[in-house]
Design a protein around this nucleic acid. Structure first.
Lengths: 340, 340
DNA sequence: CCCGCCGCTGTAAACGGTTACATTCGACCG
DNA sequence: CGGTCGAATGTAACCGTTTACAGCGGCGGG
């Protein structure tokens, strides 16, 4: 169809398994077996085929292979967006394990609305062997209906009925930070929220509230935010104006903490001398901020690694794995003596 | 092979174009035409096929389609690594345009050595329609030999013989920053280098040196670095110890500038009061640092966008497109009066 | 000496689409 | 009213693999 019926090497045309077989004086089956290390092959034949293939610069056609084996050796990663260090780290975690397992990664971000997600799920058949889906903003179970059956799916930071999922201990981490601030003597602790419909954000707020209440502090000081630096900046602006001014701020993620830090500095409010600041995620640059940011370490790369492993061999056992978070104390909250 | 010869819908088995055709009472050709909007189809038929396909939850098998059309609607992105905001932004730029063009993205990072690259290039046949390669550390022309012919390739931040490439004006940007520092009165301007074999890094150093020399300053103060925050931190540590101490520091990228800023703060060296600091890239958080970082804006997302477009319709015309960089002055270098 | 078996290799049928070419069927025109 | 033409659809070859099954020597055992 695309090639003249007389099989003359059309120079630029790509070389197929048939070309290699002909040149090596064997059948296509033998060449296939050599490349897949299947079945018994006489060493001499093996070497010859390999040599010929090398010389002809043959490499197997992935799509043809997929069609025949119904395996693609690639897995799909769909994220709500690709912006920021958090997602960058997630992808990296998945990527390194994928490579070590011989898998490829097809990523796609910016899936805020349902229609987009649907389009993506339509395109998976014959393209990926499994899916890692991170969609904290949406009700996870509603979108599951859209994807074709038989595709293993692992949810990241979201749960849904029977689907395997990997989540992080958001509430526990948030409680730990808040308790840390309380232990330092703070009573007026502001919280910068994440996006309203974001599951992670909601759990972190839950942890914050629980710790606040357990300490007998009645009013939670919550400020809206949406996980971006800008929103953190804006929230901090409003926090400093508030009177009595909060003595500590806990941002629901590091990006917002960075924004807040920027706002504080711009207004001459010193951290931690004038106000304590904490974040969540422990993205790589957190320790390079000035002052280094006290935050909650979530094993981001590990998150990626585990999800890849789970999607490759879906275990019928534990369907929900929750990763521990750990409080990482640096200098942005000061120490006990210097807090009031 | 995988399915009993009697075509009985095995429930969980995926539905093929043949199943849809049978159910709709048409031939596979018609179904195919409906899905591809090819050829004349009677409206009634069109609707019926679509309805049946919808009801049966049919979606075309990507691999089969690729095999037949020899197009995958996927393009590959290979990066040296995935760490940090810079790469994150590049991917994002490519991703958004890819989606709008109906293309998928298969990414892979961590390709420092040649063998890894080779393995990747082996795997492209039948998997992608084109390749966007960013490999500043390696001699680009040497690795081109490895990939199969016929695959369009666009190089990012690297050039090689006849290959189309998109690069940024590194030298120009570096010259602009350095001149800016000189104009502010600085004479002892330190430069934190990038990785030794990195092309971008080399060009930035060239720009720095040119500006220094043009101003009649004879000795360039260069400190090693490798584009990581850590290396910037380390370099800054050595810079403050040097006497006479430099009055300004130009880091070859923002990540190192962040590291340097951290080191300065840890030692009580104030920026910009005690020392001026500038970076390169203008990654998103640069403006949220304290103080906001003066840097060189490179249109990262644009870089991704253009490369995607170029790989989709390779123009035989201009093979090397160089993107302008612009000096972005913030507060990390102070203003004229307060510098000495 | 014959037979069965085993190690190696070849033949050909899938996999699930696309599309060149053939076919059918009205409508329309001379 | 027969022929032509175009629109709508069907048939089947083909894309490049994998793999079940068949074939074919040679060898050892009975």
């Amino acid at each position: 169809m695309r090639r003249a019926s007389t099989r003359l090497a059309t120079a630029s045309d790509s070389v197929t398994i048939r070309d290699v077989a002909a040149r090596a004086g064997v059948s296509v089956a033998t060449v296939s077996r050599v490349f897949n290390r299947k079945g018994p092959i006489r060493p001499a034949t093996y070497q010859r085929v390999l040599a010929v293939a090398e010389r002809m610069r043959y490499s197997p056609h992935a799509a043809a292979r997929s069609l025949s084996t119904s395996r693609t050796n690639t897995i799909g990663v769909v994220l709500p967006e690709l912006h920021g260090e958090f997602f960058s780290e997630v992808i990296r975690g998945i990527d390194v394990t994928a490579r070590s397992r011989g898998y490829h990664l097809i990523v796609s971000g910016s899936h805020s609305d349902r229609a987009e997600m649907r389009a993506v799920f339509q395109a998976v058949r014959g393209r990926v062997d499994g899916l890692i889906v991170m969609s904290p903003d949406l009700d996870a179970s509603t979108l599951l209906a859209d994807l074709p059956g038989g595709v293993p799916v692992v949810l990241l930071n979201a749960t849904a009925d029977g689907r395997p999922a990997i989540t992080i201990d958001n509430a526990g981490g948030a409680r730990a930070v808040t308790r840390h601030l309380i232990k330092l003597g703070h009573r007026r602790i502001a919280f910068i929220c994440g996006p309203p419909k974001n599951g992670d954000a909601a759990q972190r707020r839950r942890g914050y509230r629980a710790a606040i209440r357990a300490a007998g502090i009645d009013d939670a000081l919550e400020f809206p935010g949406n996980f971006t630096e800008e929103s953190g900046y804006e929230a901090a602006r409003r926090i400093v104006e508030r009177s009595p001014r909060p003595t500590a701020v806990f941002a629901a993620n590091d990006a917002m903490a960075i924004g807040a830090l920027s706002a504080f500095n711009a207004r001459g409010v010193r951290v931690p001398a004038d106000i304590a600041l904490a974040g969540f995620d422990d993205i790589p640059i957190a320790r390079f901020l000035s002052p280094p940011l006290t935050t909650v370490k979530v094993p981001i790369a590990e998150l990626g690694r585990r999800s890849l492993e789970l999607v490759l061999n879906p275990s019928p056992r534990k369907v929900n794995e929750v990763l521990k978070t750990t409080l990482t104390v640096r200098q942005s909250c000061g120490s006990e003596e210097e807090s009031r």
